[in-house]
Design a binder for these strands. Structure first.
Length: 884
RNA sequence: GCUGGGGUGGCGGAAUUGGUAGACGCCCAGGACUUAAAAUCCUGUGCCCUUAGGGGCGUACGGGUUCGAUUCCCGUCCCCAGUACCA
């Protein structure tokens, strides 16, 4: 056997073997506990980037760990193969989107295989194949029948750069999720899925996953859904010209308890009341309203502070609680899209209202007091506040409600409003329904037919899939390409069989990724998206791994879809993903040579870098001495700032790349790629390789490890290290840490080299200890470097069939052996470390204290002083407190 | 601004959750092997003082609690992410 480590040779060997034996094929097995390990599926853009490598390496590590722990593991992969880049390629280079997509899939599948990822390839799904998108359509029709899919005219988010419609989630922050350009609005008829029908469940069920999903994702989803509990209150219009009018302005407030402090009603410029009372508005008011309306439409910078603006309309409204008549204003800070487009302005208790009132000199009346000041406030005149008091407190200057707490008053006042017919408790949400219509070719056609007689009719299930035509004129200008293909849209009505035409919009590609992981469980089902019985075995997903950029897109849609599927009785749980891990981005330092317009990756041969104390780059120069501009960017081939995974596999091997990317930083951190570190990965694997080969002749007898009396301190110490490592590494996997177990493996390997006994001189106990250490090391290495581990396992165990076929198991830690027989107890004097004493674990406190006090180094520091106190922490430490 | 998360050597990062700060790796330096280089192995490596033994300082900064604080509390500064008038 070679004593040199040939990554290329062994990687190819084991990849072939795994493929031939279908080593990772998953079948239902009721005897074993199942584990569903899932990573976010890739978009077939052409090449993997280092972010994929990080994501899939982590997922593969867990899949292997669980397999070796005896679980029946489902670890699938597929392709998010519908989407805009395919159409961009068609527009730019005239290629066929289908061909382009499938070529890319082939390239990327090869890359995944060369990384040696342990997928069950037999379960691949492809979003763009009719066998899959048939069920996008199946779900759509079901939702249409359930009233969860509907069509309406709306202002959609429109990205001018991509010529594309975006959902609210995809236009978060007013920025296109794909290209980062600002989003504008456009009027369009859109199909919507009623995500808002599940708003409460999407919030409430988060309790189930609160501790197993990253806090950041939970928080962002809560914020995105934006539930606020409050009340509607109607303020009647009281204008002399409309006396007796029953019109009212309905406001939404979360602080009905502050209503006695309302000094005005402020409405959005687009509020219907403006149109309704246009005749009563002065020309000056009308002009100002038009100005504000126009300002509101302008795209805004993220950080831009907008000054409060507005005008009194001359209309008056009546506060139904106090009977007070207050003015109706138009304000630029009130949005038509949220609540009712009208607010009651309570400057004393709301920052925005406060600012508005100050600017326009409106009265500011305090009606909520801090509890300990409440009594004083009852007896005083209402005072103007320096700053708004926005917290809950006790009501003052509020008639009947005086002295009640905000919490109590909120409930009672909402009730009061309902009883008297001028309002009610209400909950509003920031979440909007999911607009899924896309004027795109490369997506799943929406299975709807427009019939002149029957109206909007869903396609029949038996006619699915509604297939995309071979091709369509793709212009990238925003019209639906399918609307130019008569063979596609000309059809007959499923109801009356008269002439009709099909919907020519396709679905948002996020539909595909909302349920793909259920398809993996039953990938060839032709009747249903998946069989509920089969899915019941594998799902929910036990562990999902991906980037947190999908926190409010994919991950909210997937949860929504899960709830819809539950209501369809396809699944029986509320949450489809039990545990989520979001990995940080892999970024690279990019350098720009502005004189030549070139981008240069941080190759030390090309770029000289000067860094500050924090490691940040202060200056960068190229080999010619010219100053370069630099930035930290997400690594990708298209940006030219990253190594290509293929290149890395070629140079260092897949195992080295994988173990390094896991070791370099905690999985959730951003990782700045640096080439030097990966050498460490190679070195480590080579070190293990040499160790195993060095001991091969003594340990590779294939016999099971039996109990043998240890012969020497060295052997005993090594066994201790082995069992401590097993414990640590197991705990790390369970808590989803990947960098620290690699460190522990390195320590174990170091411990084996450190015994400094030549194999030919080792006694039976030492051989036993080494064999146990190396066997454990190899098995625990598998999740990070499976090819190397398989190869070394075959040497240690003497079986070439591979670990899984051989029933290999992750080693178990023996507490007894992990325990040290002597430990070092640090001794402090006044909290400063002065000495160490050795003691057996469990040595009684008074014995530890005696040894510490008589220790020579300790005496130096306690001599001539009074011992005030001795703190002994069993098996931990002794601290002697002295005075004088 | 608000809401979260964070600040540990030249760098990436450890630290059993109040008990030896800096594991493991990278970088760097010195040495062995070599005609030489590569590879490998060994040694050193938080900062300062000291000939040595050793001592002092040190987890953003300032306080506090404690026998003992990277960890808990209060205040300040800075960084990252999300968000943007959500009533």
């Amino acid at each position: 056997m070679d004593d040199k480590y040939f990554a290329k040779k062994i990687e190819a060997k084991w990849q072939k073997k795994w493929g031939e034996t279908e080593a990772f094929r998953a079948e239902i097995d009721e005897e074993r506990p199942k584990f569903y390990q899932l990573e976010m599926l890739p978009y077939p853009s052409g090449n993997l980037h280092m972010g994929h490598v990080r994501n899939y390496s982590a997922g593969d590590a867990l899949a292997w760990y669980k397999r070796l722990k005896g679980f029946n593991v489902l670890h699938p992969i597929g392709w998010d193969s519908f989407g805009q880049p395919a159409e961009d390629a068609a527009v730019k280079r005239g290629v066929d989107p289908r061909q382009w997509t499938e070529d890319n899939i082939n390239i990327m599948r090869g890359q995944l295989e060369r990384l040696g990822l342990s997928y069950d390839w037999s379960r691949q799904m492809y979003a763009h194949k009719p066998e899959y998108y048939k069920f996008d359509q199946w779900f759509f029709i079901k939702m249409f029948e359930m009233g969860l899919a509907y069509k309406r005219m709306t202002q959609v988010n429109w990205c001018e750069h991509d010529q594309a419609t975006l959902s609210n989630e995809q236009a978060s922050g007013g920025i296109c999720w794909r290209c980062g350009n600002p989003v504008t609005k456009k009027d369009l008829e859109q199909w919507f899925l009623k995500t808002t029908a599940y708003a409460d469940q999407l919030i409430d069920d988060m309790d189930e996953i609160e501790h197993s999903w990253p806090g950041n994702v939970i928080k962002r989803q809560r914020d995105w859904i934006g539930r606020s509990d409050g009340a509607y209150v109607d303020f009647k219009i009281a204008h002399q010209a409309t006396a007796g009018s029953s019109d009212a302005i309905r406001v939404f407030t979360t602080r009905i308890d502050t209503i006695y402090g309302a000094n005005a009603i402020v409405v959005a410029a687009a509020h219907s009341i403006i149109d309704a009372y246009r005749d009563h508005l002065s020309p000056e008011v009308q002009a100002k309203v038009a100005e504000i309306a126009a300002e509101n439409l302008k795209p805004r910078d993220r950080d831009e502070e907008i000054e409060k603006d507005g005008i009194a309309t001359g209309l008056k409204g009546i506060n139904p609680f106090s009977g007070e008549e207050i003015p109706v204003w138009v304000g630029n800070y009130v949005m038509m899209e949220y609540g009712t487009g009208a607010v009651m302005s309570v400057p004393a208790h709301d920052e925005r209202d406060f600012e508005f009132a100050e600017k326009f000199g409106l009265p500011i009346r305090q009606v909520i007091s801090e509890p300990h000041l409440a009594h004083e406030h009852h007896t005083m005149q209402a005072l103007a506040l320096e700053d708004p008091f926005t917290e809950y407190g006790v009501l003052v200057h509020s008639d009947y409600w005086n002295g009640k707490t905000s919490e109590v008053a909120k409930a009672e006042m909402a009730n009061h409003a309902r009883e008297h017919g001028f309002g009610e408790a209400a909950t509003t949400y920031r979440l909007r329904d999911w607009g899924i219509s896309r004027q795109r070719f490369w997506g799943s056609p929406i299975p709807i037919i427009y019939c002149p007689d029957c109206g909007v009719v869903a396609e029949k299930f038996e006619n699915l899939p509604v297939c995309l035509p071979e091709s369509a004129p793709i212009t990238g200008t925003g019209e639906s390409p399918l609307s130019k293909v008569p063979e596609f849209y000309e059809t007959t009505c499923p109801k009356c069989e008269g002439t009709a035409h099909r919907e020519t919009d396709t679905m948002d590609t996020f539909v595909d990724s909302s349920w793909y992981f259920f398809r993996y469980t039953d990938p060839t089902n032709e009747i249903l998206p998946f069989s509920p019985e089969v899915a019941a075995y594998w799902t929910p997903v036990d562990q999902y791994i991906g980037g947190d950029d999908h926190a409010v897109m994919h991950l909210i849609y997937a949860r929504f879809w899960g709830k819809v599927m539950r209501d369809m009785e396809l699944v029986k749980f509320d949450e489809p993903v039990k545990r989520l891990l979001t990995q940080g981005m892999v970024v690279g330092e990019t350098f720009f040579d502005d004189s030549s317009g070139k981008r240069i990756y941080s190759d030390p041969r090309e770029v000289t870098v000067i860094r500050d104390a924090k490691g940040r780059i202060t200056e960068a120069k190229n080999s010619g001495g010219a100053v370069l501009r630099h930035a930290i960017e997400r690594m990708s081939k298209s940006k030219g700032n990253g190594v290509d995974p293929d290149e890395m596999i070629e140079i260092y091997g897949a195992d080295a790349a994988r173990i390094f990317i896991m070791f370099a930083a905690p999985i959730e951190n951003e990782l700045v790629w640096n080439e030097a570190g990966i050498e460490g990965g190679v070195r480590f694997l080579q070190r293990v390789w040499r160790l195993v080969h060095k001991w091969e002749s003594r340990i590779a007898n294939g016999e099971p490890l039996g109990a043998i009396d240890e012969s020497s301190d060295a052997a005993r110490a090594l066994r201790r290290k082995t069992h401590q490592s097993i414990k640590r590494i197991t705990e790390n996997f369970e808590s989803l840490q990947f960098n620290t177990p690699v460190a522990a493996l390195m320590e174990l390997a170091n411990a084996v080299s450190d015994i400094r006994i030549e194999p030919e001189n080792a006694d039976a106990g030492e051989v036993f200890a080494v064999r146990e250490a190396l066997t454990s090391l190899v098995l625990m290495l598998t999740p990070f470097a499976p090819h190397t581990a398989e190869e070394l396992y075959s040497i240690v165990i003497g079986n070439e069939n591979g670990m899984l076929a051989n029933g290999a198991r992750f080693p178990e830690s023996n507490e007894e052996l992990a325990r040290a027989d002597e430990i070092e107890i640090p001794v402090q004097v006044n909290g400063k470390l002065r000495s160490r004493v050795m003691a057996a674990p469990g040595t009684p406190n008074d014995e530890l204290e005696r040894r510490a006090l008589t220790d020579a180094k300790v005496v130096e520091h306690t001599h001539g002083k009074t011992v005030v106190k001795v703190v002994v922490v069993p098996d931990r430490l002794v601290n002697i407190v002295v005075k004088g």
